[in-house]
């Protein structure tokens, strides 16, 4: 079995579902002959036809809006938004329609829609190409928000997202697309949504992160291990709804928690997790919860992007702070 990278895993999952379920259709800009600007849909139009892999005109509002109509009428659309910085014109449809159709009709109509979109910085991309909008989306009742952090989880979670009966925002960290390869078996086995994945066990503190930041988070755990500190690392994976029990159980054992995310700090998902720990895990905490996040600044252009992105050094410093507290 060949080792593949994250973007190839996305391609593999899309191909698997297109072959398995004829209701699945892909739509988006440049996803056909061009195979997507990141090659996520390479070869799929040739294989499944222009009727099921649709190059749309340039309009994100209509990509998501038409996908909602398709979804309600029995198709299973997987829309691609070329970069998450161009998702914003579609927010109206996501918030007012995709997220509410089931509830508004008391279950008569539903919206089994997936919106895939690359997110995050660190690849020296142009302006507006490095956004992290997950908290905005997670704040919308009725949307699921998923972010894979490895080829295997991208494959399994995307299968699950496509098979899910409700709308799923599937955010793909561009920095992870080609960062490493992993063996992925194309067996059609979905991974569960709505659960965290514990990437490594630890006893001294819990590091909670998702997406590309797990790269730095794991490196920080390595650095701490070299000092004899044992960090547990949790990949949240489904950001909404949040699997709080897994995080609480971990923190109950370690007593310390550092949350790491690339998105801006204020009203980020780190705040949600920290608040939940305060509500339900306060008595097991031995130190104040720490957040290591992007700053509350506009995502800078490429020259400064690594000043913005949380570094291993910042994560280690936050971890030390929790260890020094008691």
């Amino acid at each position: 079995m060949a080792e593949i990278n994250l973007v190839e895993a996305v391609n593999l999952a899309l191909a698997h579902e297109l072959a398995r379920d004829e209701a699945v259709v892909l739509l988006g800009e440049d996803i056909g002959a061009n195979g997507g600007v990141f090659r996520a849909t390479a070869g799929l139009q040739q294989r499944f036809g222009a009727g099921r892999v649709v190059d749309t005109p340039l309009a994100e509002t209509a990509i998501v809006g038409t996908a909602i109509g398709m979804a309600a009428m029995g198709l299973k659309p997987v829309a691609e938004i070329q970069f998450s910085g161009f998702l914003y014109p579609a927010i109206d449809h996501l918030v007012n329609h995709a997220a509410r159709l089931r509830n508004r009709t008391r279950g008569r109509l539903a919206c089994p829609l997936v919106v895939r979109t690359p997110c995050g910085g660190g690849i020296h991309a142009p302006e507006h190409h490095s956004e992290s909008p997950e908290a905005m989306l997670a704040h919308t009742p009725g949307l699921r928000v998923v972010m894979p952090s490895s080829p295997a989880r991208a494959y399994g979670l995307l299968l699950a997202a496509i098979r899910d009966p409700d709308p799923v925002m599937f955010l793909e960290p561009t920095r992870m697309y080609r960062l490493f390869r992993q063996e992925v078996v194309d067996d059609g086995e979905a991974l569960p949504l709505d659960v965290c994945f514990t990437l490594r066990g630890g006893t001294d503190l819990t590091l909670v992160s998702w997406g590309a930041m797990l790269h730095e988070t794991q490196a920080a755990a390595d650095a701490l291990a070299a000092e004899g500190i044992s960090a547990e690392v949790i990949d949240v994976a489904t950001l909404k709804p949040l699997d709080l029990p897994t995080i609480l159980e971990s923190v109950a054992r370690t007593g310390r928690c550092v949350i790491v995310h690339e998105a801006a700090r204020t009203a980020g998902l780190g705040a949600e997790i920290a608040a939940s720990l305060a509500e339900e895990g306060l008595y097991s905490l031995l130190a104040p919860v720490q957040r290591v996040t992007g700053y509350d600044t506009v995502m800078p252009l490429s020259r400064l992007e690594y000043q913005y992105l949380p570094s291993v050094e910042r994560i280690v410093a936050a971890a030390r702070k929790t260890l020094e507290a008691s």
Binding site: A125, P126, T174, S302
Partner: peptide, 21 residues
């Protein structure tokens, strides 16, 4: 802002290269 200055990598300002988008 203080935190960013404290943790600024020594390669402040980054490199202009790269190609995506």
């Amino acid at each position: 802002r203080d935190e960013a200055l404290r943790f600024a990598p020594r390669t402040a300002g980054g490199q202009p290269g790269g190609d995506h988008g």
